[in-house]
Structure formats: structure tokens, C-alpha cells
């Protein structure tokens, strides 16, 4: 019996579409003038998540074991935490 592949979508394509969607949401926050600490941290979280997807699925780190598996995630978390701290301290 032949298996249908009509609905099969590459994982990288799903990741790509998800990143495009998150980017559009980020843009909407910006264009609608949404501001404040909560919005800033949410938008930053979207960006960090997209960066994680790039590292895992586009750069291929998902298939790597050992310390190299985590370098991009670590890079995202360090400046991400510092940026969050700065925005928190400034109140937005």
C-alpha cells in the first residue's frame, strides 16, 4: 500500500513558517505602539525562541551531542538575561 506524502512537510519548513508567524506578531506589537515591560519581555522571548530554532533546526545543532549542542542556546540566554535585567531596571 502506498503511503500518502501529500501532507508531509519538512520539519525545517514548519520551523520556517513558525518563525515567520512570530516575526509578524512582533511587528504588530511594534506598529500598534504596544509598550511596557511585559510586552518588551514577551517580544524578547519570541526572539530568543526563534534564535533557538535557528540553532537547532537551521544550524543543525539538534543532531549534535556534547557542549556544541548548547552553544547557541547559551549565547541567547546570556545577553537575553542581561537585556531583560536592563529593561526591568528601567521599568520598560
Amino acid at each position: 500500500m502506498l503511503k500518502s506524502t501529500a501532507h508531509w512537510v519538512r520539519p525545517c519548513t514548519r520551523v520556517y513558517l513558525l518563525m515567520m508567524g512570530l516575526t509578524l506578531v512582533t511587528f504588530l506589537f511594534g506598529i500598534l505602539g504596544a509598550r511596557g515591560l511585559g510586552i518588551s519581555l514577551l517580544v524578547l522571548a519570541f526572539a530568543l525562541f526563534k534564535g533557538h530554532l535557528v540553532g537547532d533546526y537551521f544550524m543543525g545543532l539538534r543532531g549534535v551531542r556534547g557542549p556544541w549542542r548548547w552553544v547557541i542556546l547559551l549565547w541567547l540566554l546570556i545577553p537575553g538575561s542581561l537585556i531583560s535585567t536592563a529593561f526591568y531596571l528601567s521599568g520598560s
Binding site: T26, G30, I39, S40, V43, L44, A47, G51
Partner: peptide, 13 residues
Amino acid sequence: LVWLILFPLVYVM
């Protein structure tokens, strides 16, 4: 990857 952080940081947040 770098632009994904730069975009919200400089243009949106």
C-alpha cells in the same frame, strides 16, 4: 540569528 535579536531590541522593544 544576530538580526533576530537586533530587530526587536532596536525597532520594537
